[in-house]
């Protein structure tokens, strides 16, 4: 099946959990937050939550920032910026 992860299409096995996806991507679960179809998950849900065809997954973390969005920080868009 195909899912969207941080805006990019990705092939995943049917029913893959969020925790499995993070392992595949080599991402430490304690450093990130995950949204599936704009629903923010609790960390305890990572192991349980199975993904389905077409799901939109957003994986976020903290980066350097003061105030306002600044272009040098790379891709900023989770939602629309304007």
């Amino acid at each position: 099946m195909t899912i969207q992860v941080n805006g990019e299409g990705r092939t995943a096995s049917v029913g893959v959990t969020v925790a499995e996806l993070l392992r595949e991507l080599d991402i430490r679960p304690d450093r990130v937050a995950v949204e599936v179809n704009t629903e923010v998950l609790n960390r305890q849900e990572f192991e349980r939550r199975g993904l389905r065809e077409g799901d939109h997954v957003e994986i976020i973390s903290f980066i350097g920032g003061g105030a306002g969005a600044c272009g040098e920080l790379g891709d900023l868009a989770i939602g629309p910026l304007t």
Binding site: N6, I27, R31, I59, S61, F62, G74
Partner: peptide, 19 residues
């Protein structure tokens, strides 16, 4: 210290984490 919330770079995992 303030930090911003942004997408994790999933294509380049070599990037270090601020934390």
């Amino acid at each position: 210290v303030t930090v911003a919330v942004r997408r994790v770079n999933i294509t380049d995992r070599s990037k270090e984490n601020l934390l």
